[in-house]
Design a binder for these strands. Structure first.
Lengths: 197, 197
DNA sequence: CCATGATCGTCAGTACCCTAACTGTTTGCG
DNA sequence: CGCAAACAGTTAGGGTACTGACGATCATGG
């Protein structure tokens, strides 16, 4: 990841553009000029990297992400988890079922609202998150390793913006702010439950 | 995907970085500073956009991509398709099976090498590709719509580079060059990183 | 000419990801 | 109060993606 000029960002970016405009990717290939396919491919690569580096492949990126959220915010319900991760509720249930089978999370029916199930990481689950946090970080960094530091910033900025702005276009939109606001429907206020009933 | 205007990227890029560094994404969220999750999410969004816009959701991005390749290069075998798209051979077989069931592709055993099956798009398949090409393009453009033209170039350049350079880290590496060489022997191009030609 | 190894495709199994329909619970309004 | 609407979770079903094992087919070398 050592580029001759990572000092200015600008220069590196121009170089990158020039490179892509050059004959690097011959026009025969369907993939290289369709952002959707490149994103799919990069996602695929990230999963492979993650599995190859974190917890001997015993935990997937999405499982790890879900566990991370549970560690940070115990006793949230499944819909909220879905919003945090941008997942469908059926999918959340699916993943949770696997994690529960492995005793990494536990679910209990919310006594204050019996429709809900409150989820939280078990000691084993929390331990797993703690132990592999560094590897997870490394795996994230590895994905961006081919870019110079300045380019990483640019890439992340653009990527965030794309996700944020296109958020609504996805079926499952992920909530922009975790604890704040979130439209009154399902206001998820952790304490509001008892006051509300 | 030719985006005009590549002048004046610099200012827009700096603005993007500044934006992301701002308080847009509160620290409570796991997602926003982990590239892997953002990429996953963007992929997800792209699929939703594609299905919502192309062929009334009757064809998925990967199916369309596969069909596109078949139109461009009739009579290729399944492994080669996998290399073009960055897919596992089991996965290719799976997708092909669905497309074949819908009479969009046909497969015949290669008489010259009976291990192989040569695939090609049927008239119906080719027609489908032709008819929805514009919508597919629009769906690709829609993904990048939130970015200014200059930013799109930058993003695509960085994205391409990430895919290209991390290619080997994925389980299924996609071949860098389409028709160039890659003789019948599926040479796996160990030197393949020859993108520099 | 046959044994060995490489190659291509398939199958089974697992995980992720969505939609749509269904069950139970809560809420709200007449 | 009572019932309809809204809500949380589950189930069923289709599609993407990988691994590992297997059968069939070629390609070599002894």
């Amino acid at each position: 990841m050592r580029y001759p000029d990572d000092t200015a960002g600008t220069r590196a970016q121009r170089a990158a553009v020039a490179r892509s405009r050059g004959a690097t990717h011959p026009p025969g290939h369907i993939i290289w000029d369709r952002p959707g396919y490149l994103v799919r491919r990069l996602h695929q690569i990230h999963v492979a990297m993650f599995l190859g580096r974190v917890a001997e492949g015993k935990v997937t990126p999405i499982q790890y992400g879900l566990l991370s959220i549970l560690v940070r915010r115990p006793n949230i319900d499944q819909l909220t988890i879905g919003e945090e991760l941008g997942l469908d509720r059926a999918n959340v249930a699916d993943i949770l079922k696997r994690l529960e089978a492995r005793k990494l999370v536990a679910r209990v029916v919310d006594p204050g609202n019996r429709r809900r199930k409150l989820c939280l990481a078990t000691a084993r689950g929390a331990e797993l998150v703690r132990r592999h946090h560094a590897d997870m970080q490394a795996s994230q960094a590895q994905l961006l390793a081919p870019l110079a530091p300045a380019e990483r910033e640019v890439f992340m900025a653009l990527l965030s913006r794309l996700v944020e702005r296109n958020n609504a276009s996805g079926r499952t939109s992920l909530s922009d702010r975790p604890e704040a606001a979130v439209p009154p429907t399902r206001a998820a206020a952790p304490c509001g439950r008892s006051a509300e009933h």
